[in-house]
Amino acid sequence: MNVSSTFRVARLIAAKDLRVEWRSRVVTNQVLPFAVLVMVLFAFALDSDAVLERVAPGLVWLATIFSVLFLVARTYAVETADGALDALRSAGVDPMGIFLGKTAALAAQLLVLEALLVSAAVILYRADPTPSGTVLLVTTALVATVGLASVGTLYGGLAAGVKGRETLLPLLLLPVVAPVLIGATRATESAFRTNGIAVSEGWPWLGLLAVFAAIFSVVGAVAFGSLIDE
């Protein structure tokens, strides 16, 4: 394995994916509004400030995970529209580089999405993180994002060549990301001081998120080539 070649390919793929999204505006015009809409609809459905404050962390991460499904489907729709994923495979482009590049591009989009959703939680649900809570929140978002982007890229690649991938992807992905939902929600509850939970109680949950991110980053990088091959 040539590490510099892997990272060169990863940069190339990430830049290409972000450029495609910038041009098509699918994420900004469709996925981000969808995520905000979910937050607004939750507010309508629950219709109680006290309840909304209590459930805000879980709603932020539920909306994130629902949106991940669209982002992952979109990143592979770009690859399969004109057979580009097959072409990458048949051109012998380093699969680890492809995985890392797609994960990086997905993570960048997810971070924008999460910033929007936390802002929505602050405005709609009156979430009010302290400075130390904000540090915990940003760290949680970064670690959870690495995990979600890795597992999304891995399972998206698995579903990419399969009939009915639109319905298969949620079935594969949602059960697997449950640890991220749990860990990120608990950490965010601490960051928002939901029910008086101290900020310090949120940090241990980062361990779960970090282990998840590490496992799926490594497994994805190693297994992606076999996954997209025959």
Partner: peptide, 19 residues
């Protein structure tokens, strides 16, 4: 190594339509 030196174009072109 063969893959890196060979170009296969099937029924699709392997392009990115938005680029």
């Amino acid at each position: 190594s063969v893959r890196r030196r060979v170009g296969l174009i099937g029924h699709t072109n392997g392009s990115y339509p938005d680029l």
